[in-house]
Structure formats: structure tokens, C-alpha cells
Design a binder for these strands. Sequence first.
DNA 1: CTGAAAGCGCTTACAG
DNA 2: CTGAAAGCGCTTACAG
Lengths: 356, 356
Amino acid sequence: MAERDADTQRRSNEPPAARPTIADVARLAGVSKGLVSFALNDRPGVSADSRERILSAAAELGWSPSVRARSLSSNRAFAIGLVIAREPGIVAADPFFPTFMAGVETELSGSGQTLVLATVTPGRQEADTYRSLALDKRVDGVILTDLRTGDERIALIDELGLAAVTLGRPDTDSPFPAVSIDDEAGVTATVDHLAQLGHRSIAHVAGPSSMLHAARRRRAFERAAGAHGIAPRVVETDFSATEGAAATRHLLGDPDDRPTAIVYSNDPMALAGLAVAQRAGLIVPRDLSITGFDNTDLAEHVYPSLTSVATDVAAWGAIAARVLLATIASEPVDNTDLPPARLVARESTSHSPHHP
Amino acid sequence: MAERDADTQRRSNEPPAARPTIADVARLAGVSKGLVSFALNDRPGVSADSRERILSAAAELGWSPSVRARSLSSNRAFAIGLVIAREPGIVAADPFFPTFMAGVETELSGSGQTLVLATVTPGRQEADTYRSLALDKRVDGVILTDLRTGDERIALIDELGLAAVTLGRPDTDSPFPAVSIDDEAGVTATVDHLAQLGHRSIAHVAGPSSMLHAARRRRAFERAAGAHGIAPRVVETDFSATEGAAATRHLLGDPDDRPTAIVYSNDPMALAGLAVAQRAGLIVPRDLSITGFDNTDLAEHVYPSLTSVATDVAAWGAIAARVLLATIASEPVDNTDLPPARLVARESTSHSPHHP
DNA sequence: CTGAAAGCGCTTACAG
DNA sequence: CTGAAAGCGCTTACAG
């Protein structure tokens, strides 16, 4: 690890060779610039002969289109945006976004499109970010994640003239296609699984009710519990490990009225809850069953390994990007439903201690 | 959650009002377009009087520059890039990137610059991504993370004519400024801490030696162990929880020659190692001390809570972005060193079982 | 089917 | 200090 001299830093790099333009191609092919543009964009009205000459001229020169020039004349950005509005600590603990973005990228790479990412603190900075992305036309459309109840972003983005796709269906009227994963099925399967193991006292540690997917999971929990004749107990949190731990302490506080199973709305909270239980001297799953959501990489590597609900987040990202690109290209699109979330049973769930 | 009709999807959103251009401003101020450009870019050679008229005309019209037009004429992208080349599972488990990007964003927001993100599978797709970002001038510069030994990206990016900043100093000659955090200090502090607790048999679960920061931590471990007269034992992994668990099983395999402490090169591996130890019937820290690296959010929420090494990743992102923007603006920049990593001692480390 | 031209909204020499 | 003009590299009516 050698220290380099400061002046080494300033060594200027070589200017890249001048790129051929459409004018060079036109000259070589002996046609006008306009015709080159038509040929290269696969538009009708170019004779097979000319097209041939143009394409081979372009190939010979190693021509590739200038995105910025196309941007200016066609008023498109050839990019899509993702604005993440979560508290830093919460987004860091949650593997959702890296996985999701990797999925988006699989669709983008090769399409010549690019992903513009903005991380903002929730609140008005978020709206300003969408505004400036639209004002500068830095993106042609956005993927809306973490949908909220009565989400004001829907109207804002429509008003800004951006295309969009939502992850899940909003609870308000929306002009945008939705790409959804039925995570309620995962919650229901979890409660069924626990009920089958004899649990009659099951609690749910929910995410914030202002977030649609958190509310949806909670309702699914309440419905499934009700179907088994179980009185649902719910504690709401902000999805952080800290509040997940606090909720667990609260639930385990009264030894005479302690749930035998806790269904957490995400994995980080479940792991924090597991630690709280162990610290309180409980043995999981003998004394308490625990389940998570999202099937984090770590879920199978903790002790006991964590029963969780798996969704294909990367596929979600890829499909969302594909639908958004189609929308931008004015192709007809419909709401899309991905395969539902499914339960992955592991060691953290077993028979209720009160089970015969 | 109402299903919407398919035809509702196609409701077109309002066309945004036509934006004022520099020509409108010139007309209102009664000057030429060129002068407007000079005034708005704070360039010398505009009379105070004209500047005044131009600025108020721009304000009155609500003018803001068209990024795409500026891009085309000035050949800049007003964007910086981040290319993440890690296996999906590993990047998802590691909170580094979300935190880092949030830090980058704090510097970017308000600067009118944008972050372009690409996630690629390691290998040639990575080089192609840098090439196309440069060819299309989608970015003016890039932040190089996860530096490797003899990193070919340095030469590639220099050749492509992009600006760059590296996270940490490369082991090859580099024309780019480096923004570094001394993580060796954190490893050294960890080993000192363990030695002070009486540990004489300490192992290290390292990341891949092809990654500079993994190699650096490993060397720091070996040096610190040597300083205490301890024979260093090292197992190399790919940084994944899976291989962290396997390395731990290997280290704990021989009961007669089992380390009393294990220093992991990241937190996910430490958490997986903790589980392996517990599964083997060991009590942490009574029978085995364990430390991580990066001080993940979860570290304080597991049981026992994890001793780890903390670095200010968000600040790293902010400074890296700032240095890169300065480089792009041709301002003089030097290598920057952030405050060193520091040990956060928690419950997972205590006296060696062999300690008197 | 094809050409000549205007236009996207800026920046930047070049004259004065 | 200021204006008129060319240019960045495309797309897209408008004529023929």
C-alpha cells in the first residue's frame, strides 16, 4: 500500500478518440442524416438497399448513438428512477433494496437504459426529489416502492408527467400499472402452520400501518387468526430491529399472558425478537415459536434457524422494470401478479408448549 | 385494495406546462442568449446591470436550466456512477451499500447531480458496464468500491477518460484520489482487546484475499497477533454467511485444538459463526469469544450482542462523492483519510476459558 | 422512398 | 461588456 505523491493524482487521462456521428455514417453511405436516423431506428420507409448500406457504414465506423443527443431531440431520458425514502438504519438492515435493484438491473442491462437512484429522508425531500427528476427529465419513469395509505406520490407523479409502476396495488385510484406479490398468502400459511402445531396464542409484530404492505400483512394475520378462532394480538412498530425488540419485551412482559408464538412482519425484527426471548431465558422454539418475513440470507444461518416467508424479490425487480419500460414505450400493459409468497419452515417454530 | 379496470391504466397524464428556455429569458431581459448563459453560469464579463435584469427575468419566468441541453453542448453528464460487482446474496446481506449510497446522496442532493447505479455480476459484465457508461457519457465519474489486488478497473477507467475516486488506496499506481478509512486500526484494537482478556488462541475468518480490504484486515490481524506472540490462524472465505459458517465449523472441528476467540472480517459471517458455535453446544462468550466487522444494526440486537468494529460508512459516501465532484470540476484534491475504525465491545467477547 | 432543413436548449469561440 | 452565429448529435415534420 504505497503512498502516492499528490502530484501523481493530477495525471490527466487520455482524451477518448472522437466518436463517429450520424453525419459520418451518412457521408460514408452516401445518404442524408435523416435517412440514417430512420434506418437506425428501424422505422418504415427506407429501401432495403439504403438500409443495408447505412447499417454496414455504421458498423464499419463503429458508430453508436449519442444518448445525450437523442435525449435532447426526443425529450426522453433513457433512464428510470428509484427514490428510496426510509430511515437509513432501517434500509440498511433490510436486504430488500439491493436484491430488488439487482433484479431491475438484469432487465436494464443491454437495454441501453440506466437506473438513477436517490435516497432521501422521508418527508418533503421526497416530493422535491420526484419534482427535480421530472423537471430535469432525468428519468422517463419511476418505480414506486413502499406504498403508503393514501399515497400522495401517485397524484404527484401523474401530475409531473412521469410514467410509473407501483409495487403492489395502491389503495387510491391510480393510473399506473401495478406489479404485485401476494404476501398475504405467506402470512396465512404462517398462521396455519402455527395453528397446526397447536398454538392458540399468537401475536403479530407489525410494521407501520401507514405502509401498505405492513397493513396488508397485519390484516392477513388478523384474518387468519380469526379463522382459527384465535384472538389476534398485534403490536405496531417502525420495522426496525430496535422496535422489534421492544415489541417482543412488551409481549413477553406478563408471564401469565404470554403468546406461544410471534409472527414478525420482517426478518430483522424476528432476529431481534429471538434475542430478546433468549435473553429472557426462553428457549426457542420449545417455549416460543418465532417467524420472520422476507427470508433474509441470515435466516438460515442463525440458531435456531428462522422460519420465514420467502418472496422472489429479484424477479419482482426485473418484472417491475420490464413493465415500466413497456409503459414508457407506450406498449399496452396490465397489472401483473407474481407467484405468491411462500412459507419456509425452519427450526424456530415447533409445537406449542401447551400442546398435549 | 380494489382491482382497477385495465383501461384505467392507460389514462394519460397531463402534459407538463412548456418550460421557459434561455431564449425566453433573453427576450424578457432584452439581451442575447449568449449573455444569459454567461450571467446564469456566473462567468465574468457581464455588467452588473445586465446580470441583474437577466437574473430577475429568469426568476420571473421560473426558468431552470435544461440538463439535457447542457449535457449535449458541454459534454458533461451531471451524474456520477456506482457499479456494484458482488454476488447478489452477499451484497444483500451487507448493509454497506445502502448506507454508503445514502451518504453519497447527502452530497449530491442540491448539487443538481444524480447517482447512476449499476449492479453487475463480477467478471466481464463489469468492464462492459464501465465502458458503456463512459461511451454514452452517462456519468462524469465513478466511485470505485471493493478494490481488488492489481485492480484492472483503474487502468480501464483512466483509459475511458472518466474521473474517479477510490475507496481506500489501490495497490497499483493510480491517477485517482483515494478516500480511506483505516480499518486496520479496528482489527488491531480487536486483537488487543482479546489478548487483554487472556486469549492466546485466536483465529481469523477472512474475506477473499483478492479484495484489498479483506487482505488488509487479514494482514492487520496477523501483525497484531504476532505482536502478542500469538500464532495467527486464518481461514479465507468469500464474505458470505454460508462460508463464514463453514469456516467456523472447520475451526471448531478439533476439540483439542480449538481457538478461544474468532475474529470475523464482517458481521454476517460473525452472526453465522455464532450460530454454529451455539449449535455445537458452546456458550458464547464463556467458551468462545466472537467479533465482527462493520457494526451492523443487528449486532446490538442479537444474543449475545456482538462485539464489532464500527466505521462511519455514510460519511465515507459523502466524502467520496464530494471528492469526486471536486475532481470532475478540476479542483485540486488530495487523498483523504477519515477517522479510523473503532472497536465496539459488547457481550460476545469475554475472558478466555483458559484464563486464570 | 429520399433530401434539405428546422429544431431540441444550451455553450462557446469570434467579432466588435 | 455585448451580439450574432455556429455547434453539440440527434429526431422529425415537410416537400418532393
